[in-house]
Computed example of a mutant assay.
Amino acid sequence: MNCDTGSAISTVEHIGQSISDILTTRLGTRVMRREYGNLLPELVDQPFNDATRLRVYAASVMAIMRWEPRVSLTRIQLQDASLQDQVVMDIEGRALYLNQALSMNLPLQLGGGA
């Protein structure tokens, strides 16, 4: 189910919606599920250098591997050169239950913008 409209969506669209939620949820903010989420929101104000980029990729891959069991990742990459406002993350891998290749560009709202 689409979280914005309530309409039915495909399994691949649901996986994308789930990954977006995982990557934009700050650790410790979910009641009864304090470990759910990701460190990505903590990295928003860091200088965007090679070390931060590596932390972003590591935090994203670890969170997706833990919280989205329907996916096996092969590549993850940011399209934008910073972590301000909205960024787009390219994700490639495999949808395990569907046994099909998975390629998606997920817009993530990270900054304080609407």
Rank of each mutant, 00 (worst) to 15 (best):
M1D: 15
M1G: 14
M1P: 11
I9G: 13
S10R: 02
T11R: 03
V12S: 12
H14T: 09
G16E: 10
Q17W: 04
D21G: 12
D21N: 13
D21M: 14
I22M: 10
T24K: 02
R26C: 09
R26N: 11
L27V: 14
G28Q: 09
T29M: 10
V31N: 07
M32A: 07
M32K: 08
M32H: 10
R33M: 08
R34I: 12
R34P: 11
Y36P: 07
Y36F: 13
G37Y: 06
N38E: 03
N38H: 03
L39R: 12
L39E: 12
P41Y: 06
L43A: 13
L43H: 11
V44T: 13
V44Y: 06
V44P: 09
D45V: 04
D45P: 08
Q46L: 10
P47T: 04
F48Q: 04
N49R: 01
A58P: 01
A59C: 10
A59T: 12
A59H: 11
S60M: 12
M62T: 15
M62K: 14
W67D: 14
W67E: 11
E68M: 04
P69A: 07
P69K: 06
R70L: 04
V71N: 01
L78K: 07
Q79C: 01
L83D: 07
L83A: 13
V87E: 02
V87M: 04
V88I: 10
M89D: 02
M89N: 00
D90Q: 06
R94L: 10
A95L: 06
L96M: 11
L98C: 04
N99V: 11
N99T: 07
Q100S: 10
A101W: 00
S103Q: 15
M104V: 05
N105G: 01
L106R: 00
P107G: 06
P107A: 01
L108Y: 02
Q109Y: 12
G111L: 06
G112L: 08
G112P: 05
G112D: 13
